[in-house]
Simulated scan of single mutants.
Amino acid sequence: MCNKAIPLARVAVVHGLQWQLYPVDFKTEKGTFSVYLYAINREHAAEILLELKETAVLRDGELVGIDCND
């Protein structure tokens, strides 16, 4: 099993705008988990989270592109 981390920049500049990384926590019967999203500010992050709640779907397949040399 590959346990390689996926590095995330705390800040990314896209088209001259600074996007910051915001943590989002959610609870399930199995515990509390986190995901992260980029937004311009906290209010923008809240808007993105609302859109995620309304429209998110799980893609087919698995994440591709992380190499492990165990």
Rank of each mutant, 00 (worst) to 15 (best):
Q18R: 13
Y36T: 08
L37W: 05
V14T: 10
Y36G: 12
E62L: 15
A39W: 04
C2K: 04
L52N: 14
V11K: 13
L58V: 03
V35G: 09
C2T: 04
H15Q: 14
V11I: 09
A45M: 10
A45T: 02
G16N: 08
Q18T: 09
L50T: 06
V64D: 06
Q18N: 12
D70G: 14
G31S: 11
H44F: 00
L21D: 05
R59F: 03
D67P: 00
G65K: 03
Y38D: 09
I6W: 01
C2M: 12
D60H: 10
E29Q: 11
E43F: 02
Y36H: 12
R42F: 05
R42N: 07
T55Y: 12
R10L: 08
G65D: 10
R42D: 12
E47C: 01
N69S: 13
E47Q: 14
L63T: 04
T32F: 00
N41G: 04
A39D: 09
W19K: 08
Y36N: 11
A45G: 10
L37K: 13
V57D: 11
V24N: 04
K30P: 00
V24A: 13
L37I: 02
V11P: 01
T32W: 01
S34G: 02
D60C: 01
N41R: 06
A56I: 03
G16C: 02
K53I: 00
A12Q: 13
E62H: 06
A45L: 03
C68A: 07
D70H: 14
T28D: 08
L58R: 15
D70M: 10
K4G: 09
E43V: 00
P7C: 10
T55E: 06
M1D: 05
R10I: 04
V35E: 08
I48Y: 14
A45S: 15
L58E: 13
E47V: 00
A12F: 01
P7W: 01
A39C: 04
A39L: 01
N3R: 06
V64M: 03
I40K: 13
I6V: 15
L8F: 08
K53P: 00
E29C: 06
E43T: 03
K4T: 12
L50H: 13
H44I: 00
Q18D: 12
R42K: 11
A56G: 02
M1I: 02
V14Y: 09
V24E: 07
V11Y: 04
G61E: 09
L8H: 05
K53H: 11
M1Q: 08
K27D: 14
V35L: 11
E47I: 00
D60Q: 12
K30C: 04
N41E: 05
K4I: 11
I6G: 03
E51C: 04
N69A: 12
A9E: 10
V57T: 13
E47M: 04
S34D: 07
L52I: 04
L50D: 06
Y36P: 14
K27A: 15
R42C: 00
G65H: 05
L49P: 01
D60W: 05
N41C: 01
Q18E: 15
L37E: 12
V13G: 02
I6F: 09
G65S: 08
W19D: 08
C68G: 07
C2L: 13
L17K: 14
E62N: 09
A12H: 03
L8C: 09
I66C: 06
D25Y: 07
G16K: 05
A46E: 14
A5S: 12
R59Y: 04
W19S: 06
D70E: 13
L17C: 03
K30Y: 13
L8E: 05
Y36W: 06
R42W: 03
